[in-house]
Design a protein around this nucleic acid. Sequence first.
DNA 1: GCCGACTGACTGAATATTCAGTAAGAATCC
DNA 2: GGATTCTTACTGAATATTCAGTCAGTCGGC
Lengths: 215, 215
Amino acid sequence: MVRASAARTSRQEQVEQRRAELLEAAKQVVLERGLSHTRVADVAAATKVSGGLIHYHFATKDVLLTEMLRAEAERDIAKARRLATGTGTSLQRLDRVMREFVPSSRNDQTWVLWIDAWGAGLRDETLRTISEELDTAWTTMLLTVVQDGVASGEFETADPRGVADRLSSLLDGLGLRVTLQRPGVTRKQMHEHARVAAELELGLAPGSLAAASAS
Amino acid sequence: MVRASAARTSRQEQVEQRRAELLEAAKQVVLERGLSHTRVADVAAATKVSGGLIHYHFATKDVLLTEMLRAEAERDIAKARRLATGTGTSLQRLDRVMREFVPSSRNDQTWVLWIDAWGAGLRDETLRTISEELDTAWTTMLLTVVQDGVASGEFETADPRGVADRLSSLLDGLGLRVTLQRPGVTRKQMHEHARVAAELELGLAPGSLAAASAS
DNA sequence: GCCGACTGACTGAATATTCAGTAAGAATCC
DNA sequence: GGATTCTTACTGAATATTCAGTCAGTCGGC
């Protein structure tokens, strides 16, 4: 009895694990081929599993992809929440947040995924909502940091909400350019642009944010 | 002789017109269904023409869609150029440019098309180049206006290039939000955000730009 | 009567979804 | 604790559909 119920991995856990495995494979395929060119056969092959199994766990391809994006969004949202409640001065936290926004490479998984999702969201209510929640989480997080900085006297602005909206919009525009490898917008420049804009918005002396990251 | 050579529309002109008609239909279909879900049969139906004719004028569907985007980009680029060389004070021109950027509705054709194209550009070199040219044109146009304003003493900045990059990135991020109907970012607010950011970047008194548009 | 624009039926490939069948394990009974 | 039914994750092949692209032939103007 005891042994049976204490099996290392219960049936349910195994299913959970398999689903997670399929979602992860789906993500990899989508990163390579794009949302619209992803085939369920690709996901099956990537997992070394039969095509039928995909449909055993996910009713349709759409469900698979949607759940993958939802899971991904949740992970990113959790990350944003963690950043919002980090330690250090507001200046340091703001710097950390902005660094987190910069694509880690031209192939940054997160950015590629969400740029794809923006397009799909134009016609799919569900996807639009998912990417919206992610967007909201990041903007809210920025807002928190800005508000904290204003409260502590580090930042100066009459419209924290507006600042957060502008900074997160700017970061999206910059991240897009970096990911699409637009000339003249490297990762380094993106960070620099974000720094300058934040300093202007928050009444900081030029270089304050650069100094924050050094410390 | 005279009659023949002066035919209202020459053979070549008719072909040109039909191609334009097909490109326009393709655009409409893409706006409705998205780049990846557009079928050549849809374009044929929209033009009340046989499926075969599409392939008579365009070798493949990809060619059709790519040419459609190229034509669209060229039109937009021409518009940007026109704005760059407009009349009025730099303040007025800047205001005009920013207004032009704001989606005319949640379904603004240009924005929907290019958000879709960003995603496709992640994996298609040609499409990436096309949207890059458009992007460059708008940024360059902004740069021109900023530089003119600096020269005339209306604006003050040490880095016109940086200002142009930041403003156009911000506008992309904002346009995206408006088009995806993100809560809290209406067309009006987008314009307001752009105004505030431009004033901060260019050392203008709050409201200068609002005043410019009123005049 | 030739040529170029056009039609529309057709092909073939790609691919999502279904489904009958298998086997390993869990639950139940004795 | 062994035999038995039952459940369920999974396979692989069949099926059904969707579409891009082709091609033989029509039609109208020059």
